[in-house]
Write a protein that binds this DNA or RNA. Sequence first.
DNA 1: TCAAAAGTGTTCAAGCTACACCCATGC
DNA 2: GCATGGGTGTAGCTTGAACACTTTTGA
Lengths: 231, 231
Amino acid sequence: MTPAADDPIRVAVSTAIFSLRARESGDVLMIPLVRRIRDPHLGQWALPGGWLDAAEGLEASAGRTLAETTGLAPSWLEQLYAFGAVDRTPSSRVVSIVYWALLRTDLVEQQLRAAETPRNVQWFDVDDLPELAFDHNRIVDYAVWRLRNKVSYSRIAAALLPDEFTLAELRAVYETVLGRRLDPSNFRRLLEGSEALVPTDGVRTGSHRPARLYRYDRDADVATHGPLAGG
Amino acid sequence: MTPAADDPIRVAVSTAIFSLRARESGDVLMIPLVRRIRDPHLGQWALPGGWLDAAEGLEASAGRTLAETTGLAPSWLEQLYAFGAVDRTPSSRVVSIVYWALLRTDLVEQQLRAAETPRNVQWFDVDDLPELAFDHNRIVDYAVWRLRNKVSYSRIAAALLPDEFTLAELRAVYETVLGRRLDPSNFRRLLEGSEALVPTDGVRTGSHRPARLYRYDRDADVATHGPLAGG
DNA sequence: TCAAAAGTGTTCAAGCTACACCCATGC
DNA sequence: GCATGGGTGTAGCTTGAACACTTTTGA
């Protein structure tokens, strides 16, 4: 963190990665944070991230640093914002390119087991965060806002589920992310009119009437980014 | 542009600044570009910008580099995206934090005169751009997309006009930016229901019936950025 | 057969679009 | 007065919220 005189600005890449995790109160929108093991803000929780490598792209860097610090691999990754206020880090100028990401619920536990999660990673309810290092509270707030926003006008929510899902499962994701109940019938009609949502042959059999499984047509674009594709 | 070995990543800040300028065919959405005076891409047109200074914020840097290269001061400024692909610049790693901006139509000529515009600045129709340096064509495309997008859901368009304007003037801005005609009556009703738009005492007297002047309440937020205020 | 979730139909209100029409001013 | 842009009224369509209702399964 001590800058060389001829290297005054450093570029970091961090990622706010969301997933849904089961709690007593039902599914909760959560985010993994990493405990800082050096100054500044030693011991505080911070977004996973690291320094940008000169030979890697921004998105690749987000994926790498996320994997190195948490062992997680996102099912959706998108740039959030570049934070570069002069005073956001003490005694060193850091510009942080921040990404936000989604991780399929069915892969969370699996990846956590596989990577035997570092002891200094912990998941937090996004609505109940501690005081984070640097300006990371503000960053997470913004990421949550963007997620909630995008869920309401795109089909990004499906990135939190496996390829095939029932409408009730998808609706549960919407409800958890948006924090409000949705009418099942209206939800169904809204999505069924979306072309890209295609019914499969399978059904999810459970405690009651089986529910049809759906998947999204991969070709139709998930959530347009305008004329942008990669970073 | 030749990097020192111990300074592998450099941070640049560029700005795509839009204004409306009168042409034979009516007002046109235009953008100023700067002719490069050094390699790489010597002689090609590029977005105004420069290197981030270690002691200035990102937004401040956008304003400064814009002023230094073009003599213009934006009436609206907002971050667009961070571009950082490894191959976007030859033999040097540059991460560009790109801003997009609006300049009030009544200030364009005024600022151009005051600053006696550098000879290597030229305005281009955004729908008729030459081949630009680096990945700047892609960047401008994205900026135009964001502008058009934001115009349709926010009141950002007013940033292209003076504080007071008639509804017809504002509608003309919308029509130029969006590239399609809007119904005057519906446009009026849509905006009059917006609370933040307040009629003034003045009228614009011209060739026919005088039109009421309006202004936007500065307190009501122009175009919400979520929980974000500055960079 | 009953509870519960899947899935369908219907109504109502709000918002948007299209367009007919009146108003005020300069010439 | 009359052409022109300023400004109002209104009917029809679309969208979406609310909610009653039918269907299909497990127990």
